[in-house]
Simulated assay, not measured.
Amino acid sequence: MEKQIYIKKGNDEMELFSFEKLKHSLQYAGAPKNVIETIIHGIQPVIYDGMSSNEIYKKAFALLKKHNKVCASRYSLKRAIFDLGPTGFPFERLVAALLKEKGYKTEVSVILDGACVTHEIDVLAEKDGNVYAIECKFHSDAKGSSNVKVPLYINSRFLDIQEQWNTNSKNKTHLKQGWLVTNTRFTEDAINYAKCVGLTLLSWDYPKNNGLKATIDSMALYPVTTLTTLTKKEKHQLIEKDVVLVKELINASDKMKNIGISEKRIHRVLDEVKKLCDISQL
């Protein structure tokens, strides 16, 4: 019988380690069967009780990167979103881009008057005459989660804005709903409260099969922080130049040159970009 090993998750909870779960995440990233077997074989001897899930991820990522950089990029998505920080603005850009691909008109960082006070809305999205006020809650590590206080606060802000918007005869659209988006998770109370008041929630894996991970993969809207051909410093320099999405690099050769990336490396980066965007459409 295989020995049971407990590992420490990002939120400090202990969980029974599962090779099947690791295999599934590698398969989801598009890794071929023989590469998955090589990675499992490489990790099996070094796993121990109390090992962190982050250590396991780093070992799996390093092995996957040797065999297939594009699969490694997809596998790194969760960490790559954390790496968008320290501010939440690039995450807001990412959320706006996802909505734009779904047919919404979007604006980032919009100041709106409420019935009582003025509010800054992270993303304002409009589709078919309906407007949605979206708050983005970015966490820079996996321990961060949004408890019930967050949707309580967001919903009260939304109601203040909604009253003002929908009674203003100049507005030709209807402010329909508030949304709350986070890159980590919501507590059960937060989810229950949001369901009760009609606030839409979106997190890494909520709603099931339609969270951030599934949406980003299906649309190939990867953040630049997923790329293996750029250094961490280069990624943040590009984010400072307002390049947040991988696909934006296709028309950003000048920006890459401006931060000192050679012509040869630009070709390598663009090759990875094209493969990464294509693989999600298979």
Results as ranks from 00 to 15, higher is better:
residue 184 T to L: 06
residue 241 K to L: 06
residue 226 T to R: 05
residue 169 S to Q: 10
residue 229 T to K: 12
residue 265 R to C: 02
residue 122 D to H: 02
residue 17 F to W: 12
residue 136 C to M: 03
residue 25 S to L: 13
residue 187 T to Q: 08
residue 183 N to I: 05
residue 25 S to N: 15
residue 155 N to K: 04
residue 222 Y to D: 10
residue 141 D to L: 01
residue 33 K to T: 14
residue 218 S to I: 01
residue 236 H to M: 08
residue 155 N to I: 00
residue 23 K to H: 13
residue 80 A to N: 07
residue 233 K to P: 01
residue 150 V to P: 02
residue 82 F to M: 12
residue 68 N to M: 09
residue 30 G to I: 10
residue 47 I to V: 15
residue 183 N to E: 05
residue 222 Y to A: 04
residue 208 K to W: 07
residue 199 L to A: 02
residue 146 S to K: 06
residue 194 A to E: 08
residue 19 F to M: 11
residue 79 R to I: 05
residue 48 Y to Q: 14
residue 115 A to D: 09
residue 212 L to E: 10
residue 262 S to G: 07
residue 142 A to R: 10
residue 42 G to E: 15
residue 182 T to I: 08
residue 20 E to G: 15
residue 49 D to W: 07
residue 76 S to V: 03
residue 183 N to L: 04
residue 176 K to M: 09
residue 77 L to T: 09
residue 282 L to H: 13
residue 131 V to L: 03
residue 157 R to C: 11
residue 199 L to Y: 02
residue 74 R to V: 11
residue 273 V to E: 09
residue 37 E to R: 15
residue 261 I to F: 06
residue 200 T to K: 12
residue 50 G to H: 04
residue 253 S to W: 01
residue 88 G to T: 10
residue 232 K to T: 14
residue 130 N to K: 14
residue 221 L to Q: 06
residue 194 A to C: 03
residue 123 V to T: 06
residue 131 V to K: 01
residue 54 N to F: 14
residue 136 C to V: 13
residue 173 T to G: 02
residue 79 R to N: 15
residue 188 E to H: 10
residue 174 H to P: 00
residue 52 S to V: 08
residue 199 L to R: 03
residue 57 Y to W: 13
residue 120 E to G: 00
residue 5 I to E: 04
residue 191 I to R: 11
residue 205 D to T: 08
residue 274 K to A: 10
residue 96 A to I: 03
residue 242 D to C: 01
residue 209 N to Q: 12
residue 280 S to V: 11
residue 115 A to T: 04
residue 211 G to V: 05
residue 95 V to L: 01
residue 77 L to V: 05
residue 109 S to V: 00
residue 230 L to S: 06
residue 222 Y to R: 08
residue 236 H to G: 01
residue 59 K to G: 02
residue 50 G to Q: 11
residue 150 V to T: 12
residue 228 T to F: 03
residue 23 K to M: 13
residue 131 V to F: 09
residue 264 K to M: 08
residue 142 A to I: 01
residue 239 I to E: 08
residue 275 K to L: 12
residue 164 Q to P: 00
residue 252 A to W: 01
residue 79 R to M: 11
residue 152 L to N: 05
